[in-house]
């Protein structure tokens, strides 16, 4: 089965799978720099994602405009093959929340994505097939979440990413759960494979990740599909489930703060570790606001895709100690 690589939580993998492709949410590693641009001011995650997506043996790449750097970065892919550029789909995901038109636009963009997939040789799914794929994904997600309490927070975060990578990545080494750890949440943007080392560091320092609010973590999973509505209009149900994902880029981004508040009430964490990529304005701008708003301590860690683990070991240890 041919793969479609995608970058963003607002691209429903069910939609890609229903067209006959394997959806792969790529977790990039730190590799050679192939974008021919300077790197100051550029988010390394965007850089690495696009670089590796353009080299991936995929039928197509789907990138969204939710992050302006991603939107602009696609123009800078120094692709060795023109084919990989022609099979790139830039999907506009509206940021505006309180606009009926914006939801409709998202709906139309998913239809446009469908036409793109059909052009690549995919098949337009009929409703029954779409329902089947949606239920299958829902079950897999349920399955993962049902086993959450059996595994460590680090393992869960890694499982989630492996699942979104279409099983192509085996990021899970040890799923055993340690005891007597300090409950913390992680929040923030996406992580490269090297950045995931930070999660181990948190655990080594005595933390248990009880909530993964980073991009690619549980925050960015769609809500459960409604059992009746999925049979009445599966596409609309898909649209609504994904549209409701809370994200830092939405305007206003109140739903993100509401989500955090609800999770704080449920999971009883003692601190939050914010993981944000260097040059990511969207998360950077929220650091102070989060500090002002939260009544538990927040540790702000910047990720550069390479040295984050080494650079932040002492800070994480000190933070855990203080908790």
């Amino acid at each position: 089965m041919r793969s479609i690589v995608y970058s963003c939580s607002y691209v429903p993998p069910e939609w890609i799978a229903a067209h006959g492709f394997r959806p792969v949410r790529l977790v990039p590693y730190s590799g050679t720099e192939c974008l021919q641009r300077e790197t100051a001011g550029i988010c390394h995650y965007m850089h690495r994602f696009l670089e590796q997506a353009s080299q991936f043996d995929a039928a197509g790449v789907v990138v969204t405009t939710l992050c302006d750097q991603m939107r602009r970065g696609v123009e800078c892919i120094n692709s060795p093959s023109a084919a990989s550029l022609s099979s790139l789909f830039l999907m506009h995901v509206p940021k505006t929340m309180n606009s009926v038109g914006a939801v409709r636009y998202y709906h139309e963009e998913l239809k446009r994505l469908s036409r793109f997939l059909i052009n690549l040789g995919g098949a337009l799914p009929d409703e029954a097939h779409l329902i089947e794929v949606m239920i299958d994904y829902q079950q897999k997600r349920d399955n993962l979440f049902n086993h959450r309490s059996d595994m460590s927070g680090v393992a869960f975060s890694r499982f989630l990413r492996s699942f979104q990578a279409g099983g192509l990545l085996d990021l899970c080494e040890d799923a055993t759960k340690s005891k007597k750890l300090i409950p913390v949440a992680i929040l923030g943007g996406p992580m490269s494979i090297e950045d995931l080392g930070i999660l181990d560091l948190i655990e080594e320092a005595g933390g248990e990740i009880v909530l993964d609010g980073t991009e690619g973590g549980e925050r960015t999973m769609p809500r459960a599909f409604h059992r009746q509505r999925i049979h009445i209009d599966p596409f609309m149900e898909l649209v609504e489930a994904y549209w409701s994902i809370p994200d830092v880029a939405r305007r206003p981004n109140d739903s993100l703060f509401i989500w955090i508040k609800n999770q704080l009430a449920q999971r009883h964490m003692r601190g939050i570790i914010l993981l944000r990529n260097v040059w990511c304005d969207l998360w950077h701008a929220e650091v102070m606001r989060l500090r002002e708003w939260l009544d538990i301590p927040l540790l702000d860690i910047d990720l550069d895709g390479e040295s984050a683990t080494a650079r932040n070991r002492t800070r994480i240890e000190a933070f855990m100690e203080a908790l």
């Binding site: 021919q36 641009r37 988010c43 750097q69 602009r72 800078c76 040059w279």
Partner: peptide
Amino acid sequence: SHCALESE
């Protein structure tokens, strides 16, 4: 950030 990406 747009300058870093579009100037080239």
